[in-house]
Design a protein around this nucleic acid. Sequence first.
DNA 1: GTATCTTTACGTACAACTTACGTAAAGCAA
DNA 2: TTGCTTTACGTAAGTTGTACGTAAAGATAC
Lengths: 238, 238
Amino acid sequence: MNKYNHPGVQYFQHVSEHCIHYMSIDGVIFGFSENQLKVLLLRWKGTDEWSLPGGFIYKLESVDTAAERVVQERTGLDKLYLKQFHVFGDANRYDQADTWRRTKMPLDGIKWSERTISLGYYALVNYSLVTPMPDLMTDECRWWNIPEVPGLLFDHNHIIDVALQSLRRELSDQPLNQLLPDQFTIPELQRLHECILGAPLDSRNFYKKMLASGQLERLPERRSGTSHKAPYLYRFQP
Amino acid sequence: MNKYNHPGVQYFQHVSEHCIHYMSIDGVIFGFSENQLKVLLLRWKGTDEWSLPGGFIYKLESVDTAAERVVQERTGLDKLYLKQFHVFGDANRYDQADTWRRTKMPLDGIKWSERTISLGYYALVNYSLVTPMPDLMTDECRWWNIPEVPGLLFDHNHIIDVALQSLRRELSDQPLNQLLPDQFTIPELQRLHECILGAPLDSRNFYKKMLASGQLERLPERRSGTSHKAPYLYRFQP
DNA sequence: GTATCTTTACGTACAACTTACGTAAAGCAA
DNA sequence: TTGCTTTACGTAAGTTGTACGTAAAGATAC
């Protein structure tokens, strides 16, 4: 493919003209399924290299709007819970020459900046509503279990770490219902907490705490099939 | 003064050439003295208009380094406790035409961006070590008690609000010793907590909590003169 | 000098929350 | 039937937080 026809290169030309230079947005999109906390990653065209979804800010666009755009385009969701968690602004965040070589993007002709300041946002989304979609630079978009995330391009492993630490710190205030289906069991909610905290919890105490919070409504049905004693289904109350 | 000789305009020309466009840094510098929480503000040349100290990021400079530079230049301090707390990135953060008119800066010839994304940092500094210094755009740099801060330029009242909320949330983890002299009394530490929280605390319970934390070392001397019963002096332990 | 008031310094009682662990019912597997 | 795992609910002890009592030290008023 001629490099000027490469859709990724054309995208970078568009960005170079219309977006703010020296800045980008990186989105850590968290989902939860099969008792595993997951992030959405992209595989770059013609490579085995993965990265977080990202994007750029139009010159007159609100930063939060740009972040919404990034997450919407990869997930297909229109209502999002998004949170700005950190700015990654070191002069040398990663080895640029090496990273861009690994992406196999023929960007040598493009006027772009020598370094990038990245605004980190994390999103909490309902796994089952997401349709993962790659962008112009990538072949594939899919969920990865947090513990299995491979070595990523740029400093994206570090960004995921910081996002997870932020989520952990804010766990008690955050609307975790965003990460769960409408109906779920207390053991499932416990696995979610354990994945975020990275440590096991005592189920007896977890039950007590969740029921005492008054935020859960017990439904008459139980989840059948999966476990020994069928657990009740719950729903978050408005 | 000819506008091309205005040192502030010359500074903007320098910034326009060497710094990242569309971005700035705003610093909320907190100090504590006479039982009052204070912020350092600047009065713009030939006006009664005040703002936070701010600055720009050189194209190859780390964002944290730029923030240090901003705070160092206004305070004269070289070791700083600085914390990135929020990005202010709305497309319309404030009325630009009106704000720039109020600054009385003759910037019509300067190539600068239509909007600015500001990175908010707060600093906790030792009031008595600070030498407030105005910059090229300003006549005066001085401390203001938080409750007495006037209507500021840009969206800087909002930025102070958000900084204070962040500090409040992180109060228990933050090194508040940065805000205090080497030696202080428990009642002084209590006033500091009260200023940050914006609410009175029970002195009996505050004593218990501070002593139980194990972070304080009682000195043999007491503070004389100021109060009825002379309070003991304390120091933070390493 | 004595009485009074304010501020510090330390103490007690109780409520709220956390942690550790016990146990029976429900379902699966041998 | 026996044994194992998982859910659902309970109890006891420990820790933390809140409300408030009070005596000592110093300042102020008379």
